[in-house]
Write a protein that binds this DNA or RNA. Structure first.
Lengths: 117, 117
DNA sequence: GCTCGAGATCGACCGCCATCTATCTACATA
DNA sequence: TATGTAGATAGATGGCGGTCGATCTCGAGC
């Protein structure tokens, strides 16, 4: 229910008068909100957002050794960012020999995407 | 960000062997990415995400005095969150007398929403 | 004028996070 | 078994951000 601004400020205020009709709306489901917050925080870093962008545009699984030279941070730092993306449930990895391949989990961004639109 | 194909991994055991086909993909436009990071960070807090949710579900402008009792934080803290949402370009406010009304800026979430989907 | 109240700002505290270097683990080749 | 390499982990550090109480601002009503 929208607030009617025309009714809001009256010329006289009486005790207990409100600025507007009560809105008091139940927010989005709590678990739902917390999951989206995790995803949003994971995307709230330039390196991680660009990591997701690269991984998404590349349909397959990308080797870490291909990702490190793309960014101006050390290898442990990039590993840390990949770990955060994995903790948020956005990406997962697969090890083959010495190499590790990361990929975006299908549908991982759908919840936030749907809520945003 | 520069892409350097020469940085592809080299191993001694198989000269010229790679862990994978070179991906080295130019990411999303830098300014574009930074704007989305700002929005994502602004949404990366449970209170702010729920604030945006409440404001969006109400097509009109909502008084701060209606928002404060919805959350278990002090008034200065909620004001701080509203300020962060405004800094990120997600919401704006309008003052009428003693009261302040907040609303979601139309299209503010569109950029991130489009990129996510 | 004076007071009251809604909301913003200030200053402080504290925890989280991005970053680094150093080290560790696991695997592959000799 | 010994060595080299890819990637993860550990520990330290500096900065950002969420929170509070206290204070400030300014419009409204007396």
């Amino acid at each position: 229910m929208a607030v009617d601004l025309e009714l809001a400020p009256k010329t006289k205020r009486s005790p207990g008068e409100r600025c507007c009709e009560p809105v008091v709306y139940p927010e989005v489901d709590r678990e739902h909100a917390l999951r989206m917050v995790d995803v949003a925080r994971a995307l709230g870093d330039p390196i991680r957002l660009q990591l997701v962008d690269v991984l998404r545009k590349h349909a397959g699984k990308v080797c870490v050794c291909e990702l490190v030279p793309l960014f101006d941070v050390s290898q442990p730092t990039l590993s840390h960012h990949l770990g955060r993306l994995r903790s948020a449930g956005i990406v997962d990895s697969e090890r083959r020999g010495l190499w590790a391949y990361y990929y975006v989990i299908p549908g991982a961004l759908e919840e936030l995407s749907t809520w945003l639109s």
